[in-house]
């Protein structure tokens, strides 16, 4: 049976891992390559690196960091942040990234999803979506939640799937950093409405939140940062707990 994936997310800036509360007040949580290796040892199923400053400050992702990670890591990883062309993506592929994640660039130029899928296959293309609930509707936001768009979240995700997204990484900006649990309502709606894997993101604070999101929604993976970085939830313990609830995991 296909396992539900546990994905630590390493937000990186200047080659160091950071994680903000609601994307503000950044804290330093270590060296990304070392953290990545530790996570692989602990049983993480996959890793996501997001260069959170890349879009905002137009900084490209550090290819050297990606290469170092690929040399040491025996599990797959995704890299996102500042990817706006096929050439950006190809450089990351050649540096050893298994998947790339695009966010703002896909919103500004949806054809990019199609171009990337054609060039490298849908399995390479993760479309990351940051969403906020405003007056009962979910809207896609850009630049780490700073900028609202005219796209309704569920519509945009269906469109992205149609264009060739291989996976959706859905972050609720309302839940992110709160540690109050994932947005199960939205995640379940989204997971049911598309036929590609969905990664839940935003709000993980304790083990029960992971149990909830896998039991109550059809998501394929759950992503978190600070609860892993600061050792609040050890991954082996998390997986044992999920297994007790008959959630398929890799141990």
């Amino acid at each position: 049976m296909l396992s539900k994936r546990i994905i630590p997310c390493l937000d990186v800036k200047d080659g160091r891992t950071v994680k903000g509360v609601n994307f503000v007040d950044l804290k330093d949580a270590g060296d990304p390559v070392e953290l990545a290796w530790q996570y692989a040892q602990q049983g993480a199923d996959e890793l996501v690196f997001l260069d959170i400053t890349a879009t905002h400050e137009r900084r490209g992702t550090t290819l050297e960091m990606v290469k170092s990670v690929a040399r040491q890591l025996n599990i797959p990883f995704t890299i996102g942040g500042g990817i706006s062309t096929v050439a950006d993506a190809e450089a990351l592929l050649n540096a050893g990234a298994d998947k790339i994640s695009i966010n703002s660039a896909a919103v500004r130029n949806p054809a990019l999803i199609e171009e990337l899928a054609k060039a490298f296959g849908v399995q390479f293309v993760v479309v990351a979506v940051d969403t906020k609930l405003i007056e009962g509707k979910n809207w896609v936001h850009l630049n780490g939640g700073r900028l609202i768009t005219e796209l309704e979240t569920e519509n945009w995700i269906r469109k992205a799937e149609g264009l060739g997204a291989g996976e959706i990484l859905l972050t609720s900006m309302d839940h992110d950093g709160t540690k109050q649990g994932f947005d199960c309502l939205l995640l379940d709606k989204v997971a049911k409405s598309i036929n590609i894997p969905v990664i839940a993101s935003g709000g993980a604070g304790k083990v029960e939140h992971f149990t909830e999101v896998f039991l109550q929604t059809g998501v394929d993976a759950a992503l978190a940062a600070s609860v892993f970085h600061f050792g609040e939830i050890p991954i082996p313990y998390l997986k044992e707990e999920l297994k007790k609830h008959h959630i398929p995991v890799r141990i």
Binding site: M1, L2, S3, V122, Q123, G166, I196, D220
Partner: peptide
């Protein structure tokens, strides 16, 4: 089933 088949399987 979702396509692609993506992740860890036994």
């Amino acid at each position: 089933i979702k396509i692609p088949h993506m992740g860890w399987n036994n």
